[in-house]
Write a protein that binds this DNA or RNA. Structure first.
Lengths: 238, 238
DNA sequence: GCACGCCTGTTATTTTATTGTCAACAATAA
DNA sequence: TTATTGTTGACAATAAAATAACAGGCGTGC
């Protein structure tokens, strides 16, 4: 009955963006929108919008377009945002604390229930009313509470083991900020947020653009500095 | 001379991951590796590894594989990690502060030089020795300093305007944590980190798996709770 | 120093993703 | 009513990405 064909990852990754734009439209009291109009706003082809949405059902109407509120709520349901999620944070460092303090999550139904850390100075404290427990308590907590998502913000060295344990104890998904690829059972879902990777790709693009400018305008009369370095490095290889 | 054909985004996004694995190998004192071995470690096909790397040059050798240290350094250069980057943070809230406090960036040559905020309580303070300035100072600062990357961690409402200004004043790239799509000139590069979107895709996958389990194993004898809720929501549509 | 097998770089094939097109139908205007 | 316009959903065409296949150079062991 519910056996739809597999939705492609590319589509799923676009869903939150649709959801955001539809939310904006809703706030602007716009009641209907065509794929063409949305296309202009979102910088996606109208064709793709229609195809994306059609993966989940015919939400639109010929000659009318899409009803904004209806579509918004449909995507909300598709993403599963019509219920609450219990989350725990493992690692009470900078990023862990920042996420706990980010109140917008709670407004959307993503509720952080507990923080776990190894640092005795943090254990026993509360962050925005949320208790920080010793990691030793993790097993008992996870086994006695329904934890949907574990947010991993710990050092690489510990992340892999912790993720494995959590998976074993029944956590459904991991939102992984640790700079490592987790190896967990197939039935546990992982979404990676590798901030450093993201920054590096930005730097690559910056460099690419900068060197292109050099090439086009011939700003350097002599040998480009970077290329010269490359040659030296090559010589140093054994 | 340097006019290589365009590298696909998919490849660029994988580069930091290669870089990370090669760094690990280097630390384990492994001097050479074949695409096949790396393939097993990284869960990518050997074919793809060879093709990815070949976009940038023939770093390997038949019958030998790739020299880890050499390849590591080549990718380092490709990503532009062989120099320092000046960054500023716009928005001294949770995430902004967390990034400032994240000392690993500095180790890699990503140096945060200043923070800008609108909140008078923050302005004048220092975070890890880095001054927080009023946003009014931004224009002068950016025009008199070489800013490679602006890290945007401000509310949606302000992000678009600020990004535009920064672009105009000469910032090369934006690392955007604001939950909005920036519209900046073509020569300014944007890398988005939409945390909420990322979390939502995780929730989608969790729900998908959960509902699949229902379908396959028929765990619920009665009506599934979630489905019932969904029906109620549908009734509430007008 | 020679032959064998490993492993790359490269080309071919397959798969996946995006874009373009059009018949069918709803909404609106005549 | 009836014609006209707008817009979807389906499908075809194209483009991009991933995988597979393979020819040939290069270490390795003898």
């Amino acid at each position: 009955m519910d056996s739809e064909k597999k939705i492609s990852p590319a589509v799923i990754n676009r869903l939150p963006r649709y959801y955001r734009y539809l939310g904006d439209l809703l706030e602007s009291d716009i009641t209907r929108i065509s794929s063409k109009e949305l296309s202009a706003k979102m910088n996606i082809t109208a064709s793709q919008i229609r195809q994306d949405l059609n993966n989940f059902g015919g939400f639109g109407q010929q000659g009318y377009g899409y009803n904004v509120e209806y579509l918004y709520n449909e995507i909300k349901k598709i993403l599963g945002l019509d219920r609450m999620y219990n989350m725990i944070v493992i690692g009470g460092g900078n990023i862990g604390q920042a996420l706990v303090n980010y109140t917008n999550f709670e407004k959307r139904g993503f509720v952080i229930k507990a923080v776990f850390d190894i640092n005795p100075r943090l254990v026993g404290m509360t962050i925005r009313g949320i208790e920080v427990y010793d990691v030793d308590m993790m097993e008992e907590y996870v086994k006695t509470h329904d934890v949907d998502v574990a947010i991993l913000t710990l050092p690489r060295s510990q992340a892999v083991k912790v993720a494995n344990d959590l998976a074993k104890w029944g956590v459904k998904g991991m939102w992984n900020f640790s700079h490592v690829d987790l190896q967990v059972p197939d039935d546990v879902l992982v979404e990676n947020v590798h901030l450093t990777d993201s920054l590096m790709t930005l730097l690559y693009k910056i460099n690419e653009m900068y060197s292109e400018e050099n090439d086009l305008h011939h700003l350097n009369n002599g040998l480009p500095v970077k290329q010269k370095q490359a040659e030296e490095d090559e010589e140093n290889q054994d």
